[in-house]
Design a protein around this nucleic acid. Sequence first.
DNA 1: ATGCATTTGTTCGTATGTATC
DNA 2: AGATACATACGAACAAATGCA
Lengths: 249, 249
Amino acid sequence: MFSPVQHVRAYERIVEQIESAVLSGELAAGQNLPSERELMRQFEVSRATIREALRVLESRGLVRSRPGNPKGPEVLSFQTNLLRTPLSHLARVEHVSLTDLLQFRMVLEGSATYLAALLRTDEQLAEMEEALAAMVSSVERGMAAFSAADLQFHDAVARASGNELLSVCSDVVRGVVLQMMHEHIAGAPDSVDLMQTWLKAHSALLDAIRAGDAELAARRIRQDLFDHYEMHVDPERRAVVEQMLRSGS
Amino acid sequence: MFSPVQHVRAYERIVEQIESAVLSGELAAGQNLPSERELMRQFEVSRATIREALRVLESRGLVRSRPGNPKGPEVLSFQTNLLRTPLSHLARVEHVSLTDLLQFRMVLEGSATYLAALLRTDEQLAEMEEALAAMVSSVERGMAAFSAADLQFHDAVARASGNELLSVCSDVVRGVVLQMMHEHIAGAPDSVDLMQTWLKAHSALLDAIRAGDAELAARRIRQDLFDHYEMHVDPERRAVVEQMLRSGS
DNA sequence: ATGCATTTGTTCGTATGTATC
DNA sequence: AGATACATACGAACAAATGCA
């Protein structure tokens, strides 16, 4: 007859309502929520409850509130941050190894590149070429600048895959890999040779994308990633990783 | 001379401290945090501040607090929860289509299956066979039970990949796909035919894994996923998705 | 450039329903 | 079954920070 009532805490319902308003686009980025006091009138709850809801929304990257702002909490433009923090946490929590990450990145970027070779528009191709040019010109500015340009390049490729999810995840994993490299391994040497090798590889990769040869492009990027991070791969799993890049998957 | 003071909110520092304690394993899953009142003594802040921190940790899936629990907030066993909520949010926020999700799932599960075929132990193989048997016996209990058993099967396969990250992500995406199907599409009919077809496909997939034929196994699972969700694929992108499954990527 | 009003960050006190011993 | 300790939620208050006239 009657079904048990599940306790939903007050702040949860507020989070739900605000979140769905933001997600549905009812509240666009750049706009502002009503002030805490106004919200507490609208939801008919105490200020503490409103604040708990706001803290959760803030931690999810949907809003940001600053002290003394009469306009109220701002609605943020969400993006990859929504996923980056949790994934980075996951990597630390589960003691994900660099080998795991590299393997995962090979899977993601391999597929993204495959799709990019098939679907890229001329504008997107131009973007990649531009990013590659930026890499060339940043060789002499050191490894840090070079890495930043490299990220741009990979991002351009991933976006051309036409799959937002794949693109965002690739982006996130790329970031986490870089972060772990920074944390655990001494900074890469400013080797011009290394950068030149890297450039040549990327140039060949871009050729494959330009030609629309998806299979080749996917194989190349996987090979490039492997070559670049080879030294950090767990010796026991090396054979498997290598087999992955020889094959199609 | 002096560097600008960045004011970090009190609750943020508490989140950081508790989070790093949990993440480092100092506080294992199943244990309990001190009660709110005790925490407020230890951190020397008010109860409201403690609660804001706890709400954030709760929304990240690290702890759960229930009213009247004298032992204090529980530390949860994280892993998939840590990623599922954000990814599910991302899918909704960025208006990720079912086609995006399916494509992504094909990439992840394809690679996971590839690796599983190479690396699975006999125990893991037995697990998959067990899950398949559970699917067989749940055919008559309806689609819901069948789907649950199906999840078990895929989870067993993904775990055998030996890559925790790949496994967790596959699991998460699988869940999100199911959730979106539930939200947007009328519940699948209790078609026994459909389940039988599904079973046959899984059986063939398991054969490939058992034989250690990684290429074949990967191709099969991608094909199976495509066949199953084909009707929901955006017609414009159908050709590309099909090309993906014919090829290696 | 200076106040001024408003808002947030934080604290304290209190009432109420609930889970555990 | 009762006592105890707990979380949920409310209200009032003060300091610091912000935006605007």
